[in-house]
């Protein structure tokens, strides 16, 4: 067996696995898209082409006494503020942990990582009491404000990425008279784009899909987020066997996620092509 045939075989196996994985991931998604265009009688047929296809599910969805644009805006604002908060504070913290040398740095970093172990459910009630005390319950502030406190996951992710950026760049910047802030803002942030984009996706997805926190902190429909609004209909639709409408709602609710993903994906590629350093 020559090297090339070996390589082709290996590629074949790799792609077979990747294709199988992709099909597994895509199938539920395609089923959702297909079902959202089917008529209720066809909702459990095993076909991916809706026949007859209909827009009735979307019409039904928008006919509900539910202000979709408002739910959408609420979700979007909360998610965007969360992303901004996380990117800003996590990047600053990560920069300090990766570049700035100070006493107790490793201890602090370990402590930060330990907080990853604390499940969210444990902090829900103490946080709620704090926000109650601040008179912020019933507003959307408790949903995005904590993102500005930084976060262990984002800080860890970005620090690891920042460590891969050559130290020489810091030294060169210092020679040119750049302050620490300038080093962060003009060198690390632009070079960290791929990691920042990844964190942006994770954060946006987490905030967009969050059901528990909006449920607890915000008033009920109509002034709530898309997830709470859809959950409100879920019982009615599944009890009534209207999966087609439910899938239409699910499809609409994930569209922004897809947009964010494609936007951030561009940053991945750009980031990689920019970070080259001539040695």
């Amino acid at each position: 067996m020559t090297k090339t045939t070996q390589k082709i075989l290996l590629d074949l196996v790799t792609y077979a696995f990747l294709t199988a994985g992709a099909v597994m991931m895509l199938a539920p998604f395609l089923w959702m898209v297909a079902t959202s265009f089917k008529i209720p009688a066809d909702q459990f047929t095993h076909t991916l082409i809706p026949n007859p296809a209909t827009l009735d599910n979307f019409r039904k969805l928008f006919s509900f006494d539910l202000n979709f644009p408002r739910l959408f805006m609420n979700s979007a604002i909360i998610s965007l503020l969360t992303v901004i908060g996380q990117l800003l504070t996590c990047a600053m913290a990560a920069f300090c942990f990766a570049v700035v040398k100070f006493r107790g740095r490793n201890l602090l970093f370990t402590l930060l990582l330990v907080t990853l172990m604390i499940p969210e459910q444990v902090t829900l009630i103490p946080n709620f009491i704090i926000f109650k005390w601040l008179h912020l319950v019933g507003t959307s502030v408790p949903l995005w404000l904590p993102a500005f406190w930084g976060g262990a996951f984002g800080t860890f992710l970005l620090r690891q990425y920042f460590l891969t950026i050559p130290r020489e760049l810091v030294d060169a910047a210092r020679v040119d008279g750049a302050s620490l802030w300038q080093t962060f803002w003009r060198i690390y942030l632009p070079l960290g784009k791929p990691a920042l984009a990844a964190l942006a996706i994770f954060t946006f997805q987490g905030a967009w899909n969050d059901l528990l926190h909006p449920l607890v902190y915000m008033p009920t429909v109509p002034n709530t987020t898309l997830t709470v609004g859809l959950a409100f209909f879920q019982t009615q639709l599944t009890m009534g066997g209207r999966f087609t409408v439910l899938m239409a709602g699910a499809l609409i609710s994930i569209l922004p996620l897809i947009l964010v993903f494609f936007f951030a994906q561009k940053q991945f590629i750009e980031g990689i092509s920019l970070s080259g350093l001539k040695r």
């Binding site: 829900l124 009630i125 709620f128 009491i129 109650k132 319950v137 059901l211 528990l212 449920l215 607890v216 008033p219 009920t220 429909v221 709470v228 959950a231 409100f232 209909f233 879920q234 019982t235």
Partner: peptide, 22 residues
């Protein structure tokens, strides 16, 4: 003020509010 949630969400929310004494 009427606050309506679906069955599952209702009990989650209620337990949180009770635990927070509100």
């Amino acid at each position: 003020n009427v606050d309506v949630s679906d069955w599952d969400s209702y009990w989650t929310k209620l337990k949180t509010l009770l635990a927070a004494n509100t």
